[in-house]
C-alpha cells in the first residue's frame, strides 16, 4: 500500500490523493489546523489542489493548552 508519513506515522494515500482528501480521511475537517507538506506550509485555501504522492511528509498541528 502506498504510504505517507503523517505526524511521524505511516498513513495510506487517501482518495482523492490531496491534502483536503487526507484531512477528510483523518476526520479532521472543520477543525482549526495548520498543515506542512514536505516542510512547506500549505494555506487552507490550497488543500484541495495540493496533490500527495507516496513518501510525502505531512505535519498537521493545532493549538493546545500551554504556558
Amino acid at each position: 500500500m502506498p504510504l505517507l508519513t503523517v505526524n511521524g506515522r505511516p498513513e495510506p494515500l487517501p482518495a482523492p490523493a490531496t491534502l483536503a482528501g487526507l484531512i477528510e480521511a483523518l476526520q479532521l475537517q472543520g477543525q482549526r489546523l495548520a498543515v506542512e507538506h514536505n516542510g512547506q506550509i500549505v494555506p487552507r485555501s490550497l488543500w484541495s489542489e495540493t496533490r500527495l504522492a507516496e513518501q510525502d511528509h505531512i505535519e498537521i498541528v493545532k493549538a493546545i493548552g500551554g504556558g
Partner: peptide, 19 residues
C-alpha cells in the same frame, strides 16, 4: 498563551478543542 502541537491521529476527531 497557547501551544502548537501535532494533532493526535485517530483521537482528535470530534474531540473538544481548546479554541
Amino acid at each position: 498563551t497557547v501551544a502548537i502541537r501535532r494533532v493526535n491521529l485517530g483521537q482528535d476527531a470530534g474531540a473538544p478543542n481548546l479554541l
